[in-house]
């Protein structure tokens, strides 16, 4: 299965599910990462981590460790 890290820069994908647990999961939900939402990978930070993504019309940054658990269609 593909996850957010498999997107190349500028590519978009739909969220299928995500496996993050606990507070991080709730945060992701609050920030609008829900099943079915369209996410676009904008860039990777200069030192290779974190990532910048675009969703619901705004830009969000998250670490690779969290992005890895977000499955993309």
């Amino acid at each position: 299965m593909k996850n957010l890290l498999d997107l190349s820069i500028g590519e978009s994908g739909k969220v299928l599910s995500f496996e993050n647990q606990g507070v991080v999961r709730k945060r992701l939900l609050d920030m609008g990462i829900t099943t079915g939402v369209q996410i676009k990978l904008i860039k990777v930070a200069p030192m290779g981590d974190p990532l910048e993504i675009e969703l619901r019309g705004y830009n969000l940054s998250l670490r690779k460790s969290e992005a890895k658990s977000i499955n993309i269609e």
Partner: peptide
């Protein structure tokens, strides 16, 4: 450290 940050 939670790092889920909006880039305004």
């Amino acid at each position: 450290s939670n790092f889920l940050m909006e880039l305004p």
